[in-house]
Amino acid sequence: MAATEAAEPTRRDFLYIATTAVAAVGTAAAVWPLISQMNPDASVLALAATEVDLTPIAEGQILTVKWRGKPVFISHRTKKEIEEARAVPVNSLPDPQSDEARVKKGHDQWLVVIGICTHLGCVPLGHQGQYDGWFCPCHGSVYDTSGRIRQGPAPTNLEIPPYEFASDTKIVIG
């Protein structure tokens, strides 16, 4: 093995490198299933969409439903809450987004957001905090009536799940 430093690469050097490369690729291929198995499995991915009837939700009330194991807030907002959300200059927000962009057109009173604080995943409390929206008890993030972050350590607004209005009184989340 103690070849001189300036020696030409030999066929044996080539074989060493080729063998090592095959071993490395083979190890990676063998490890991949061990890593991939930790991802959400087929039964988790197959969780059906959730249908929610909106008729029992009174104005000013927030309903929490479970979708993909997470809480989803459905807020039936009052006129005052909608006005508050729209009165703020969008550019002054930490994560600028207009209230119109966060609801479905023609259904301005319905705000549907994933009820998980974007900081570290706690569930914020409704109708609390100085913006009448949500307050996260874990680390003090405050959201407004549009679910936008206004104060505290959370980096982004409450996430909007994919959903559609099946009729005026029914939504399908997912």
């Binding site: 930790m38 991802n39 959400p40 499995d41 988790v44 993909r68 194991g69 997470k70 998980i116 995943g121």
Partner: peptide, 9 residues
């Protein structure tokens, strides 16, 4: 995080 959870939560 979803890889750690093996789910969405």
């Amino acid at each position: 995080t979803e890889w750690l959870w093996g789910a969405y939560a």
